[in-house]
Design a protein around this nucleic acid. Structure first.
Lengths: 341, 341
DNA sequence: CTGAAAGCGCTAACAG
DNA sequence: CTGTTAGCGCTTTCAG
């Protein structure tokens, strides 16, 4: 176990002061080129590594970005968004800490607290489906830690948000279904506590209305993402007297599960029932049939959210910086599961 | 922006010393019950949050566990393992930082360095497929930071490892294929830089040999996980004069892609070609046909790896603690893609 | 059981 | 351009 060197060690060896070493290491302008070179050389020789804890404690700011997402797995979207976040963070010299809330409010609160206690420079969060109070976010704000919501936003707080046009995505895909000649589309929506579920639901309903179809007759069942509800919901749809001729699911994962149930029952997609998902998960293109979905610029959401939180973190005057509410476009990817032959 | 209180603030208000406050907050035995109560009360009243940076700096140890994985997305396995890690970490009062190497050695090195600089208590890592040098791990070890490898191990370093019995999993699934009557199985292996690829390959080959089949005639093509190679590899298999009657893929994701290609070409699974994957990703059960796979105790791997790294981190005498090499069992899940009718 | 004092390793004025 | 002097907020001897 080798010794861990500090700026003190390198100062001693070079017979200069710690401050000069500290400055040199940070490439501060008022250090001569020569001393800088000497310092870097010695640092390298000793394999010096700055103690970030001490550095952050003294400078009162950190290079950490905390990210809280509902779940790391299963959702291609978050993985992609995370990549975007990490790309920007890396460019700007931040390192990111990822935490999962597991879709639980209490866990989300714990994670945010932990991040605040670790004195992160900023927090990026995609709310859990249980989140209906925002004190934990306020807590961070009160400590001057900027919070930016991504994907799953909330209008209850005055916070910057980077989301996707869920409403339009749902509207467009529903319109696509109608254009394809489906007259009785159903919707499997997500938990209404999530604003994205609401927006997708509204998009669905409005598209029906605008096409002159009766929205009140449309069947909508709620299923939580990732649960087995999709199976039950599908069976309920199938047992209706007037069986829907298309199903728009609020997520790709639900769509995949629905497809499974339909195929097991010998129901053909899209001949008997058309199927569309939401999120643009690449897996939808590997299914049989390929599934129509609504693509989201996941990576870009991560990029923009991260840029924003860093800007807020580095801003001297947060007040006049204000908050932004960025809504990125979605795009319907038409695939076999909805295309009439 | 509310004031951020410190132990000093609460000491002043209670007219006691900082040290007592510090001790009380940590529930140190030599503080009277009464003072503790007063301190806790005041802490709560002020909404005091310990500054972890300062705490860690002073005590020279942290409550952070760093985790480096090749990629967060696409692989159900890592997500599950991560959950196991987080469960244990939480129980023991640690918080985990997740980093991605993106399967790149350089990025892995960067991440490990960042973790070391953040003075994490321990590092859990699943090696990237490019990793062929281990100085970055040695670097952590030299700084007295324990490193535990999970899933993707390496025998080049004397480190604790928690892996899965890849050899046996591959052996068993190949045996299963042979039992089902397939006489000419092919294998799509992963990058041979990964020990798991090698082990799965060896398991495949040995199962053939033990069944009296010619291993030298077996077709093996390498495809990197997640790349589009799976398509090419499948086409090469199909264009062989003696077309294989079964394909064992080193990962579920590859299997899914192969299935797609086969179906697009009108080749029936399992009638024309049987198909098996590896990892136990739940998506395999949603495919049509359902795909045979080798289940790994992903969550358990995370749990055990995390327990171990914490044990090593907290050990006074790392030397005599030594290293462990835990190999967890795998289990073949037989599904339609390999079952003869 | 409690307090005083001395740091952890680094940054940040303030002089020169 | 460089050194000196104070801390950041907490933990930790060492006395009492």
């Amino acid at each position: 176990m080798g010794k861990v060197y500090t700026i003190h060690d390198i100062a001693i060896r070079l017979d200069i002061s710690k401050s000069t070493v500290s400055r040199a290491l940070r490439n501060h302008p008022d250090v001569s080129k020569e001393t800088k070179e000497l310092v870097f050389e010695m640092a390298k020789k000793l394999n010096y590594q700055k103690n970030i804890l001490a550095s952050n404690l003294a400078s009162k700011n950190t290079n950490l970005i905390g990210v809280v997402i509902p779940e790391i797995a299963r959702q291609h979207f978050f993985a992609q968004a995370l990549s975007g976040i990490q790309k920007v963070a890396k460019e700007k010299g931040y390192i990111v800490m990822v935490c999962q809330s597991n879709e639980e409010l209490q866990e989300e609160i714990n994670q945010v607290n932990a991040l605040v206690n670790s004195r992160v420079a900023g927090i990026l969060i995609s709310l859990s489906k249980e989140t209906d109070s925002y004190e934990h976010l306020q807590f961070a704000i009160d400590r001057n830690i900027p919070v930016v919501l991504f994907d799953r936003g909330a209008d209850e707080m005055e916070l910057s948000q980077v989301t996707v046009d869920d409403y339009k995505g749902a509207y467009d895909v529903t319109k696509h279904l109608i254009h394809q000649g489906y007259t009785n589309p159903a919707h499997l929506c997500g938990p209404m506590s999530l604003s994205i579920s609401q927006k997708r639901y509204n998009g669905f309903i409005d598209a029906l209305k605008d096409a002159g179809l009766s929205a009140s007759n449309a069947h909508v069942y709620q299923c939580d993402n990732l649960s087995l509800d999709a199976k039950d919901a599908t069976e309920r749809l199938l047992s209706l007297k007037k069986r829907p001729d298309a199903v728009f699911c609020m997520s790709d994962y639900i769509a995949i599960q629905v497809l499974k149930v339909l195929k097991d029952k010998g129901i053909r997609v899209p001949e008997d029932i058309a199927l569309a998902g939401f999120a643009g998960d690449p897996i939808t293109d590997l299914m049989d049939p390929t599934i129509t979905t609504v693509e989201q610029p996941a990576f870009e959401i991560g990029v923009q959210a991260c840029r924003r939180v860093i800007m807020e973190a580095e801003s001297e005057d947060r007040e006049t910086l204000g908050v932004i509410n960025k809504v990125l476009p979605t795009k319907v990817i038409e695939r076999d599961s909805t295309l009439r032959v």
